[in-house]
Computed example of a mutant assay.
Amino acid sequence: MKIGEAQQSLGSPVTAPVYAGIALSASDGHTAAELLRSGELALQAAEEQETPGYGFFNPDIAQTARRRSAVQRALTEALANETFRLDFQPVYAIRTGELSGFEALLRLHDPELGNISPAEFIPVAEQMGIINRMGGWCLSEACRIASQWPAHIIVAVNLSPYQFYSGTLIGDVRQALEQSRFPSYRLEVEITEGTLLKDSELVLHQLRALRDMGVAVALDDFGTGFSSLSYLWKFPFSKLKIDRSFISALDESSSARGILRSIIKLGHGLGLSVTAEGIETTKQMSTLRELGCDLAQGFLLDRPARVTDLAAIILRNFANGLTRRQPKSAVSAAKDLAQG
Rank of each mutant, 00 (worst) to 15 (best):
I3L: 13
P13E: 11
P13F: 02
P17C: 10
A23G: 07
S27F: 04
S27A: 07
D28G: 02
D28M: 05
G29V: 00
R37E: 13
G39I: 05
E40H: 07
G55K: 01
G55H: 12
F56C: 06
A62I: 04
R67M: 06
R67W: 05
Q72Y: 10
R73T: 14
T76I: 03
E77V: 10
E77Y: 02
N81K: 13
P90H: 05
V91S: 01
T96E: 14
E98L: 03
G101K: 07
G101I: 06
E112T: 12
I122N: 00
P123A: 07
G129E: 08
I130C: 09
I130R: 02
I131G: 00
N132A: 14
W137S: 09
C143K: 12
V155C: 14
N158P: 09
Y162Q: 08
F164H: 00
Q175V: 03
F182R: 06
L187P: 13
L197W: 06
L197C: 06
K198R: 15
Q206K: 15
L210M: 15
L219H: 07
D221E: 14
F235Y: 15
K239V: 08
R244Q: 15
R244G: 13
F246N: 13
I247A: 11
S248L: 00
L250W: 01
A256H: 07
G258F: 02
I259D: 05
I263N: 01
I263V: 14
G271P: 01
S273C: 03
A276C: 11
E280K: 09
Q284I: 00
M285P: 01
L295H: 10
L300H: 08
L300I: 07
L301I: 15
R303N: 12
A305T: 06
V307N: 11
S329E: 10
A330I: 11
A333P: 05
A334F: 04
L337E: 11
Q339R: 15
